[in-house]
Lab assay of single mutants.
Amino acid sequence: MTEYKLVVVGAGGVGKSALTIQLIQNHFVDEYDPTIEDSYRKQVVIDGETCLLDILDTAGQEEYSAMRDQYMRTGEGFLCVFAINNTKSFEDIHHYREQIKRVKDSEDVPMVLVGNKCDLPSRTVDTKQAQDLARSYGIPFIETSAKTRQGVDDAFYTLVREIRKHKEKMSKDGKKKKKKSKTKCVIM
């Protein structure tokens, strides 16, 4: 069974824990209790493949930012979460993405942009803004509501699919490099 290491990042209060708990335990946590770091595991079937999701729910508070490099190193894919009623959390996505790329030393890291709290009427981040940002990053965008469960499975499952595509691409690139290195030079 394939294991996928997913990391949920975003500013404090955007609903990272609520999304994760909704996926794992099928219930909505409405009281806000700032996370330092929590880890969850769940076995699911995605596109006919049974897999184990190892999900790291991270601290959004700035005082825990020193811990970010460590979990970013171990993560295979990242859910970059903002709240649709919090423009600052949307603007912060850029910083999370840049930090992930720096730590992973790669421009090509599996990510999904997630606009959470889409059940709320007080939207300050337009869907088109988020779609445009995701398009500019070359990553999928999904709106979710941890409260109603809308888009929750889709967000995590899409990230797994992005990781699969990335692994497939990397193995193809690896095979191309191996083929090239088999060419021999004969000096007579």
Rank of each mutant, 00 (worst) to 15 (best):
T2D: 14
E3W: 01
E3H: 03
K5T: 09
V9K: 01
A11I: 13
A11W: 10
G12E: 11
A18W: 01
T20R: 00
Q22F: 04
Q22Y: 03
N26I: 02
N26C: 13
F28W: 10
E31R: 02
E31L: 06
E37G: 00
E37A: 01
S39P: 00
S39M: 02
S39Y: 02
K42Q: 09
K42D: 05
V44F: 15
V45K: 10
I46G: 11
G48F: 03
G48V: 05
T50F: 04
D54G: 01
L56T: 12
T58I: 03
T58S: 09
A59V: 01
E63Y: 03
Y64F: 08
M67K: 03
T74G: 13
F78T: 02
L79P: 01
C80L: 12
F82Y: 09
F82W: 06
A83W: 01
A83V: 02
K88N: 10
E91C: 04
H95D: 12
Y96A: 13
E98S: 05
Q99V: 10
Q99I: 15
R102F: 04
V103Q: 09
E107R: 08
P110T: 02
P110H: 02
M111P: 03
V112R: 01
L113N: 05
L113M: 13
L113Y: 06
K117R: 12
C118H: 11
L120V: 13
P121G: 11
R123L: 08
D126G: 06
D126A: 05
D126P: 07
D126L: 06
T127K: 05
Q129I: 08
Q129T: 09
A130Y: 14
D132L: 04
A134M: 10
Y137F: 06
G138W: 03
G138H: 02
I142D: 02
I142K: 12
D153P: 06
F156T: 05
T158G: 07
L159W: 02
L159G: 03
E162A: 07
H166Q: 09
H166N: 09
M170A: 15
K172R: 04
D173E: 09
K175F: 14
K175I: 12
K176A: 14
S181L: 13
K182Q: 15
V186Q: 10
V186A: 11
I187M: 13
I187T: 10
